[in-house]
């Protein structure tokens, strides 16, 4: 028996919004430590890794490890049927071929349940090595989303150059070029507005704007985003999900032909 409850549907809606543009389907691996989803986008350029810890759920029971393949478009449709302040309970029997989403209004007077067929997904699991990154940038997630949106107008690719002075985002194409420089925040009044750079070595890498923009769909989940970069390895774009866990996106840098 699997049962996981959150007192508020909002967070689950935001999580689905953060993945559904990249992934059509995904396998939710459930164990007593929580729920994990790892999946590549259709073109195998980026990887999404979602971790939700069991101890942060309002109720969590997982008697046996369970892998539930879900159509994320359908799951998003079902979650649209929940009000933001509804309690959400996700339930499945062991070896079941369906999962049930139950929504309960705050006054307990409306209870709805939606059953969804599970899919048998033959997805590759990738082993992500522990990496000491040359540069780790923490910055406001809204600012990152804004920069990705603005620079995508100029080119398919964006160069991110990080030094200890700051981080520079650049794009150039037929229309012209754009550069946005952010300096490290000197005094931090509000932590969520800070730009903080931890640098071992400067890094310059090129990434596809399309994927970066897809990652910024997670912006409503967290005020800050963390970018971890090293030469010749995938960028990690991480959004923390309050005390529940995190969503990480991995994107391989573009290379010279």
């Amino acid at each position: 028996m699997f049962e996981a409850r959150l007192m508020n549907a909002t967070i689950l809606k935001k999580i689905l919004d953060a993945v559904k543009d990249l992934l059509n389907e995904g396998t939710f691996d459930c164990s007593d430590s929580g729920i994990q989803l790892q999946a590549m986008d259709n073109s195998h350029v980026s990887l999404v890794s979602l971790t939700l810890r069991s101890d942060s759920f309002d109720k969590f029971r997982c008697d046996r490890n369970l892998s539930m393949g879900m159509n994320l478009g359908t799951m998003a449709k079902i979650l649209k049927c929940a009000n933001n302040d509804d309690t959400v309970t996700i339930k499945a029997q062991d070896n079941a071929d369906t999962v049930t989403f139950m929504f309960e209004s705050q006054n307990h007077e409306k209870v709805s349940d939606y059953e969804m067929k599970l899919m048998n997904l033959d997805q590759e699991h990738l082993g992500i090595p522990d990496t000491d990154y040359s540069c780790v940038v923490r910055m406001p997630s809204m600012e990152f989303a804004r920069i990705c949106r603005d620079l995508a107008q100029f080119s398919e690719s964006m160069v991110i150059c990080c030094t200890k002075e700051g981080v520079k985002f650049s794009a150039s194409g037929d229309l012209g070029s754009a550069n946005v420089k952010l300096a490290q925040t000197s005094n931090v009044d509000k932590e969520e507005e800070a730009v903080i750079i931890e640098m071992q070595e400067p890094v310059t890498l090129t990434f596809a704007c399309r994927y970066l923009n897809a990652f910024t769909k997670a912006t409503p989940l967290c005020n800050q985003v963390q970018l971890s970069m090293s030469a010749d390895v995938p960028l990690v774009v991480e959004y923390r999900i309050s005390d529940l866990g995190h969503i990480r996106y991995y994107l391989a840098p573009k290379i010279e032909e």
């Binding site: 990887l47 990738l126 090595p129 390895v233 290379i255």
Partner: peptide, 13 residues
């Protein structure tokens, strides 16, 4: 520039 697949960086488990 070319876009490599993420699978060329992470091993299949």
């Amino acid at each position: 520039m070319t876009q490599p697949s993420i699978t060329s960086f992470f091993n299949t488990r």
